[in-house]
């Protein structure tokens, strides 16, 4: 990898992501404004204030996942056309994932803060996801809660971006028949076969085998925001390494 080529590669690839992210933020702002107006109208009929998780973070996760899927292939093609090697391309993608996570976190926390200010007087307080999960209090989130939320959302977005990238690479590297098998087989396996077999299997061993590690993970993350950050970073590393293994020898033509 040569740092000299990293800057133009990042500049070139991030432009599209930045544009998409800004469009996304603009759409979200429009939705949030509509939501505030609706909440304001509904507040007249409510006896006491309630808190709602802002849907910005969930929507942003979906957005980041889609960016992860789309970016790697498009960028790899453009960068190889301009004489950039695989390593530099992959490092560029990691930097883009980080920059996107940072951008959407900052935008998200600002929007959430402003939304909270706008909604706290109408009895429907919108709060960040981290606040809802980890805060012991009820009501308005403080500045430190927003910092905690940012600290949690950056690795989460990074993880989701890299998951999208990994899925994209898996599909890119798979031969055509296998793409169809995986595209159909995975949902069938997860939502039909496993629940069906699991419900008839003695002692629900199959479900237990799948659910138990998930429960452990949830328990670990629920213990504190720090654990959640560690888990997100650990998954990011796993997804990143797997993506690199698939990408480094991928034909681009």
């Amino acid at each position: 990898m040569n740092k000299h080529y990293l800057v133009p590669a990042f500049k070139s690839s991030f432009r599209g992501v930045l544009k998409s992210s800004l469009v996304f933020v603009a759409i979200m702002i429009a939705f949030i404004i509509i939501n505030i107006v609706i909440a304001g109208i509904a507040a007249n009929n409510m006896a006491s204030a309630k808190t709602t998780i802002s849907y910005f973070e969930f929507a942003a996760m979906v957005m980041v996942f889609v960016l992860g899927i789309c970016c790697i292939r498009e960028d790899a093609r453009l960068l190889i056309q301009h004489g950039v090697g695989r390593t530099t391309t992959f490092v560029t993608e990691i930097l883009i994932a980080l920059a996107t996570a940072l951008l959407l976190t900052i935008a998200g926390e600002i929007i959430l803060g402003l939304t909270q200010l706008a909604t706290q007087n109408i009895g429907n307080i919108e709060v960040p996801l981290a606040y809802q999960i980890y805060s012991q209090q009820y009501g308005i989130a403080s500045f430190s809660d927003y910092l905690l939320s940012a600290a949690l959302m950056i690795p989460t977005y990074l993880m989701v971006f890299l998951l999208g990238m990994l899925i994209s690479m898996i599909f890119y590297r798979l031969p055509k028949p296998w793409k169809i098998v995986v595209a159909i087989g995975l949902p069938v396996l997860c939502f039909i076969v496993i629940p069906f077999v699991g419900s008839y299997a003695s002692g629900d061993w199959l479900i237990t085998a799948i659910v138990y590690p998930l429960r452990l993970l949830v328990k670990f993350c629920a213990a504190g925001p720090g654990n959640c950050v560690v888990a997100a970073l650990a998954f990011s590393v796993i997804f990143g390494i797997c993506s690199w293994l698939l990408f480094r020898k991928a034909p681009i033509k």
């Binding site: 990898m1 040569n2 000299h4 080529y5 599209g16 498009e74 093609r77 453009l78 190889i80 056309q81 301009h82 004489g83 950039v84 090697g85 695989r86 390593t87 530099t88 480094r248 681009i252 033509k253």
Partner: peptide, 20 residues
């Protein structure tokens, strides 16, 4: 192989379009 300096000296025009 995966050498940016070497690859940057080469420009390939291919039949396939690699632009977005």
């Amino acid at each position: 192989l995966d050498n940016d300096c070497a690859l940057n000296k080469i420009f390939m025009l291919s039949e396939k379009n690699l632009y977005p």
